[in-house]
Every structure is written in C-alpha cells, then in structure tokens.
Design a protein around this nucleic acid. Structure first.
Lengths: 228, 228
DNA sequence: TAGATTGTTAATCGATTAACAATC
DNA sequence: TAGATTGTTAATCGATTAACAATC
C-alpha cells in the first residue's frame, strides 16, 4: 500500500459505485469477484479499480480476486458508512420532500433525521416518518444527533444564509441543490447537485457536432462584425 | 480560434455556469465583464474561462473584456438553447413530479412537454400545466415534438427497458436518476444524476482524515489476518 | 502611445492506462 | 509447478495553469 498523502476526489466518487455493485453481487450470492468482473459491473477498467482500492489498502488475493463481503465491509469503513449516518434536509418544498422520500427508501446506510422549513403550512407535517421542523430547531437537533452532513434544497436566494448557519452549527459537508456558488470556510465540503447544469450540458450533446456548427455559423452570416 | 476536433466534457459542463452568471449580470445591468470578474462570479480561473470560450470562437475585445449580452447569446447558441428545448420526464413518482415542477419553475430555455407513467392512479393528473401520460403515448409525442432529451426517474429495475424504448423512439440524450449503469448505443449520451453516490461520497468528506484512518486501523487490530 | 485584457501557445500537473513483478 | 490475478511502478494522456504576444 503506497502511502498517498491524499485521495483524489475522482477516486472517492467511485467508491459508492463499488459499494452498490458489491451489494448487488452479494444478493446474487457471488462470493468472489475479480477486478475484471467488477469492470463489467461498473464500467470502469480493471486497472482503475485495482488502483482505486490500492489507495486504501490491499484487499484482494492474488490469483483469486476479491472476497465480495470483505471488500464491501472495507469500503463501508472507508466511506464512513459502517454505522448509519444521520443527515438532515433543509428546505421542505417539492424537491426537499422528494429527496427526503427518495433517501429514506433508496439509501441504506443513511438516515434522514429531520427536514426543516420556515413555512408554517408545512411545519409539523410528516414525510413518511420524518417530521418537518422549524429552522429554530436546527441547532439543537444537529448537536443532539452529532449531524455532520446536510442537504440544501432551499431557493437560491436563501442558500448562502442557510449554509452559513449550518456551518456555524457544526455541519462539515453539504449537498447543495440550489443553483448558486456557496462560500464556505476551509474544511467544509460543498458538492453541487445542480439539475439545471446537468440538463443544459446534456442538451449540448443532444444535437450533432454538425448542427452546433451550423448554429454558430448562421449567426456569423447575419451580423456585420463582432461586437463594439 | 484553434480548430479543436472536439470539446472536452469538462468544458461543456462549465458552459451552463457561464450562462447563469451572465443572466445574473444582465439583471444587474452590467454590460461589460472581464475574465477576471467572471472568475469572481464563477469560481473558475480567468485563464480557464478564456480557454473555455476559445474552444468556440473569439467573443471578447482585447483590452476591454466581454460584452455580457453578446457572450450570453453566443453561449445560448453553443449549448443549443437559442430556441426553447422540449424535453420529457419519464416516471411520475415523487422524484419525477418534483423534477417536473422544479424544471418548469427554474429552467428558462427548457420546456417540459409531458411526464409519463404507467400507474393508472397518476395518469391524467396534472403537474402545474403538464399532463401525466401513459407510456403508450411516448413514441408519438416524441415524434410530434421532435424531442431529443429525456429525464429518467423510474425505479432502477425499469430504467434499462425505458432507455431502450426512448432510444428506439429517437432520444439522443438522457439524464438518468436511477442508480444503475445504463447501456446505450454509440451516439446516445447518458448523464447520471445519482443522488446516492453524491451523498455517500460527501459522507466520506464529513469525517476527518484522522477519523477515517482510525476506522480502518481499528478493523486491522480486530482481525487475525486478511481474508482466505 | 500606455494600459488593459484577450486569445493562444508552452509548461505543469494530475489522472488514467499499460506493463509487470509479486504471489496466491 | 502452472495459471491467474493482484498491487505497484512507469508511460501516456488530457486538463489546468502560466506565460506572453496580439491588439483594443
């Protein structure tokens, strides 16, 4: 095991994929798996898989492969999912509610402890078994459960204030659905799940190279000169 | 303008960010902006911004900067948002419905034409002004509107079948929310918006390097040897 | 002209891929 | 032992950053 000083984010983003695939393999009662077979399941190359795992240790057996359940447990520990992680969702609008439901039903290892909103109409409501609480309850709940991870699903204008508060209450990592760049102090991680960006960049690829060229070209013909 | 044979995906993913920032700047009536100022708004370096734009042309004025409205229009054309893009959402569960609402209200340039589901209970329902249609109506609607982009928000087990159908109806780009690797023919783009992966990789960062080390270390002490 | 900022080429950095020795 | 597959080092590739000439 090489003593890497840190692990690239690209590698960390692949860990949950390994975890999901290993869970599937266990369900199919497959007990041993090679990097080549893992490649088929994940779409990553065998070399990349072996190198990713090597960042954290030597978990396989030469000549044989990886023991599915053992590797799964190692990855759980690496990510920090060996015990259920409590999280909160801030913003109980349509997206926040859908995310709450989604996570409850689809996310083993993670437990949504509460959702927060300021709208009196939704406070007190229950999303499955999760209660919507007023923002005033946020600090005490974060401290009580030792919560380190929050999901932000509030309108753009409110997102910076929300993240400032969250950070002051001890939150260390944020999944942000609001389409804004959030400023946070060093040591706090923000990942953006920006649906607009995903969708728009996808639209770029929905037309062919040729069509894109034509669009830019047509423009040129219509105008006399570049601006100014 | 260098004649790049293709544009890296990393660059394409930044285009919507430029677009959003330019929209904001126009609202603030800022007519000229330098790459340095754009850097402040986007968080990307000025060099990167200039290089990104250079993939598509020379849109600025040396010594001055970029004309906000002109650059915005250029980027709209590059992405393909110069005319409103019709899309569909497949799967009208909680997530599908939230995405439909979200996009309608938050996404200029994109129009959700319909949502699809097979559950008789939701078929015929309206999400704002968007109707939920049965899957049997998918093919004709895609053809009628010339739709090239679809969002998949169905359960994992159904996602591959759905994407196969969509591709056969002419869809060229898919935003997939189901946590599975979808197989598609060459020329079709799939982007994954996998909330579980985002959340789990975030959890990795919510504990410190030291804590992670301890977790893996503790394991080692408890066991006699590696597996087998 | 002097000052500013772009567009582009060159240098650096980081991640992926290839190769192979270690070893089950 | 022979065959297989890991773990790791070296080579390649691609993206970012730095430098600077072009030019408004």
């Amino acid at each position: 095991m090489p003593d890497h000083s840190y692990t690239p984010q690209t590698v960390v983003k692949r860990l949950p994929v390994y975890l999901r695939v290993l869970d599937n393999l266990l369900r199919r009662e497959i007990e041993i798996i090679s990097s080549k077979e893992l490649s088929g399941e994940t779409g990553f190359t065998p070399e990349q898989i072996r190198k990713d795992l090597a960042y954290f240790g030597a978990f396989g057996t030469r000549g044989t492969g990886y023991q599915t359940s053992y590797l799964r447990e190692k990855i759980l520990k690496i990510i920090g999912l060996d015990q259920e992680t409590p999280i909160i969702i801030v913003g109980a609008g349509h997206l926040g509610i859908a995310l709450t439901r989604y996570n409850i039903t689809n996310n083993p290892y993670v437990e949504v402890v509460a959702a927060f909103d300021n709208d009196p109409d939704v406070i007190g409501e229950k999303i499955l078994n999760i209660e919507v609480l007023p923002a005033s309850r946020m600090e005490s709940l974060i401290q009580e459960y030792g919560i380190k991870v929050a999901v932000i699903a509030v309108p753009s204008q409110k997102a910076q204030q929300v993240v400032d508060d969250l950070v002051s209450y001890g939150i260390k990592a944020v999944l942000n659905f609001a389409p804004v760049k959030l400023e946070v102090p060093q040591g706090v991680q923000v990942h953006n799940a920006d649906l607009t960006i995903e969708l728009q960049s996808l639209i770029y690829y929905s037309s062919s190279e040729k069509e894109r060229m034509t669009r830019l070209q047509k423009e040129k013909e219509g105008e006399i000169e570049s601006p100014q």
